[in-house]
Amino acid sequence: MHNFDIEKPSSVSEAVAALAAEGAQALAGGQTLIPTMKQRLAAPEKLVLLSGIEELKGISASGGKLTIGAATTHAEVAADGSYPALSALAADIGDPAVRNRGTIGGSLANNDPSADYPAAVLASNAVVNTNKRAIAADDFFVGMFETALDEGEIITSVEFPLPEAASYQKIDQPASRFALVGVFVAKGANGWRVAVTGASNEGVFRWSAAEEALNGGGSLEGMAPDADGMIDDIHGSAAYRAHLVGVLTRRAVAAA
């Protein structure tokens, strides 16, 4: 790892100011960024630690909404339980040590195509709040490892409208425990939304054909998305992943 300077701001405004410097990057739980720096795939000149910022931490429920601070760990979300499908998702990320450090904000900012949280945020129609705006889930995820965040912009919290019913079903990639395919379904004010992670080269996406079938009272039997554009690697072919999307969506709806 190349060396870097460290800043430890205690407020969001101090963090934003520190991130304005050339080559500065935020560090939350470090469970993605530290391994990436060790591989020299990232070499920031300065790391701005978010872990000392109290206003980025904690979970609160009010008015049918659950708000989770960006620096809240996976373990804290797993233990919360006010959105059971979300807590179950958090409880299955990586392993206990990863969950004790990794944060929801870090996972969303990274937008790994096989990460779990993006599916929950997209299916729940959540809002990603940053230091300067509120971004709807439909606008937040732009592509593989790409989000709508600007340079130096930090996620402050995520707001989940609590759904009537929801479930996340995941087949683990056995070595990394990331999603080989994961499907999050949630029934909210405007009906069902179905979000798929681990499958597409473009990252998390909404499976609109399944949403239409569910909202129109149709059946999901035998449905699967097109395998074109699906991830095809040693862990699973594109056709296998497309098949799993259908299977996991049916399981998720049954379990919701």
């Binding site: 560090l27 470090g30 469970q31 790391l47 630690l49 040590a97 004790n100 450090r101």
Partner: peptide
Amino acid sequence: HVNGRAVKSCTMLAAE
């Protein structure tokens, strides 16, 4: 253990 919780010490900075 860091503050009572299991952590991978190869994936945390001393400064943290």
